[in-house]
Amino acid sequence: MNPIFLVGVGGMLGALSRHLVGQSLPGERRDTLVVNVVGSFVLGALTAGLSDNSAVLTLFGTGFCGAFTTFSSFAFETVRLYERGKRRRAVGNAAVNLVGALVAVALGSAAATLLSV
C-alpha cells in the first residue's frame, strides 16, 4: 500500500485521537503530557518489534504517533510558563514531559520484547 496514504490515514486518526484526549482532560498541560507519554509508549513498542510489518509501522508509528504526540504544544506551553514568570513550573513541565516520554519508550520497548518471547 502507498506509504503516503498510510501516513495520511494514521495522521488523521492520531490527530482526531489527540483532539479527543484534549476534550476529555480539561486543565492546562495534562492532555499534552498524556498524549506524549502514551504516544511514546506505543512508538517504543512498535519499534522494538511489536510489528515487523512496514505498513503497520508507517500507519501507526509515523502517521498515528506523529500526529497524536505533540512536541510543539509541549514547547509552547513550557515557553509560556517561563514568560509568565513561572520558571520552576516551566522547568518542571519540561522535565516531566521529557523524562515521562523517555521512560514510556523504554517501557513500551520492554513490553514488546516480553510479548514477543
Rank of each mutant, 00 (worst) to 15 (best):
P3I: 08
I4L: 15
F5N: 02
L6W: 03
L6A: 15
V7D: 09
V7Q: 09
G8C: 11
G8S: 14
V9L: 15
G11C: 11
L13C: 14
G14Q: 13
A15Y: 07
S17Q: 08
H19D: 10
H19T: 05
H19M: 13
H19N: 09
V21L: 13
G22P: 06
G22L: 04
G22F: 06
G22W: 06
G22Q: 12
Q23Y: 01
S24E: 03
S24Y: 06
S24R: 15
L25W: 10
P26A: 12
G27M: 13
E28A: 15
E28Y: 08
T32G: 02
T32L: 03
L33S: 04
V34W: 09
V34M: 04
V35P: 08
V35G: 09
N36H: 08
V38L: 11
G39N: 01
G39C: 05
S40Q: 09
F41G: 03
F41S: 04
V42T: 03
V42G: 02
V42E: 00
V42I: 15
V42Q: 00
L43Y: 02
G44Q: 06
G44E: 02
A45C: 03
A45M: 10
L46S: 02
T47L: 14
A48P: 04
G49D: 12
S51E: 01
D52W: 04
D52K: 07
N53R: 02
N53Y: 00
S54W: 02
S54T: 09
L57Y: 01
L57A: 06
L57M: 09
T58R: 07
L59H: 01
L59F: 11
L59Y: 03
G61T: 07
T62L: 05
G63W: 01
C65G: 02
C65E: 01
G66P: 09
G66H: 05
G66E: 07
A67Y: 04
F68C: 08
F68P: 08
T69N: 12
T70A: 14
F71I: 04
F74L: 12
F76D: 02
T78F: 07
T78V: 11
V79D: 07
V79M: 12
R80N: 07
R80M: 11
R80K: 14
R80E: 15
Y82T: 02
R84E: 10
R84C: 02
G85M: 08
K86W: 05
K86A: 14
K86D: 12
R87A: 05
R87V: 08
R88S: 13
R89K: 05
V91M: 15
V96M: 14
V96R: 11
L98Q: 07
V99M: 12
G100P: 11
G100H: 14
L102Y: 08
A104E: 09
A104H: 12
L107W: 03
G108Y: 06
A110P: 00
A111Y: 03
L114F: 05
S116Y: 00
S116L: 10
